[in-house]
Design a protein around this nucleic acid. Structure first.
Lengths: 196, 196
DNA sequence: AAGATTACAATGCACCTGCATCGTAAAAGC
DNA sequence: GCTTTTACGATGCAGGTGCATTGTAATCTT
């Protein structure tokens, strides 16, 4: 059995187990023993692939971000800048079990970032991408006449991203229905990308 | 010393110590011993005022929400609906140490709410207030001709609240400067409450 | 074939956790 | 004045924690 295993794949598999625990119990539920049990391996094995618990957590954080990134990318609707933005935002909202899971996980790590600079640094790396993506779509729409020329793309991107993030948590806690949140989103998109 | 203490005041004092720990280390840093040490009392004393750790945490959650509520209320600018909304939102953004502290604390409890129904229920109680407040101000502005009549106040309130929440976390992690976030906010307020 | 390396497993250890128990001293009630 | 109640302090306990250590068997290297 030894020597022939795919190191990275094994690390991802352990990270997936870790993320399942975070989904159910939050970061506090994560312990070497629980992760090992959830992954169906021994504790020694977990220790073999991750020198410390913190390294494992950071790896899992990066891993889940990649997962979200790929899922969002696969769901993009390229018909227009507005559709691109809308599909990206909706794909980040917790409107089904998979997205609720990921939202819960992301929220848990976000809270940790508020008190741990290493987590915060990891989060900050992936951040500019969203703002740039939104700003780019707005600029494209402006060139096509699909968005008002007086909008400042970067400012609107900040607002769009804030709305996205700001809709996630209340929806997760159960404040909003799917209809409420999508209506509100479309309402705002009407302003940035007017239909007529 | 016994028998003559103000029970509620003592509980708040212990809760304040707890919240200081949450600010520095997150919810994971909270233990009976740490809270006792931070409050300058014995562990037995903490146990005397709170039967379980969970009760203490929930009490602290309610306590910090009251604190935020009162601070925001004290800072409201009543000159116009727009000023009211703007001052309320700005007071909730982490733009100085006090507000950063409260934002960190609120975020920590929010993350817990995602995996613990009791916390979620507590959060949900305080929630409708914001939406109603925002919607009310928009309706008032519409009556004064300070806001477009075709806005649906409840929808705009959802968006406003999402923007508020959505601006908090990126700012906390260090993605936005104070200027960026206030510019973006004013940009959006221009749409809901046009100046001319 | 031999030895080094890798993958995993089991266990021990010091430390921390929430909570229960027990003790004590001061005030309140009678 | 005596008992009860309240406020607090100290300590014990079972269980969980991350991590280090040790062992072992399978594979790769030579």
């Amino acid at each position: 059995m030894p020597r022939q295993v795919d190191h990275q794949a094994r690390r991802r598999q352990i990270a997936d187990a870790l993320l399942r625990i975070v989904d159910r119990e939050g970061l506090e539920g994560v312990s070497l023993r629980h992760v090992a049990a959830e992954a169906g391996v021994s504790m020694g094995s977990v220790q073999h692939y991750f020198a410390t618990k913190d390294q494992m957590m950071i790896f899992a954080l990066i891993h889940v971000h990649e997962r979200i990134y790929q899922r969002v990318n696969a769901c993009l609707d390229p018909r227009s800048p507005r559709d691109l933005v809308r599909s990206a935002i909706i794909e980040m909202l917790p409107l089904d079990d998979e997205r609720r899971t990921e939202a819960r996980i992301a929220l848990a790590f976000l809270a940790r970032s508020a008190v741990d600079p290493e987590y915060a640094a990891t989060l900050r790396e992936g951040y500019p991408y969203h703002a740039v993506f939104f700003a780019e779509q707005i600029r494209r729409a402006q060139q096509n006449g699909e968005a008002p020329a007086d909008l400042v793309p970067e400012q609107e991107a900040v607002i769009l991203f804030a709305i996205t993030q700001g809709l996630v948590n209340p929806t997760l806690i159960g404040h909003h229905t799917e209809e409420t949140v999508i209506d509100a989103l479309d309402r705002h998109l009407d302003r940035v990308f007017p239909s007529e």
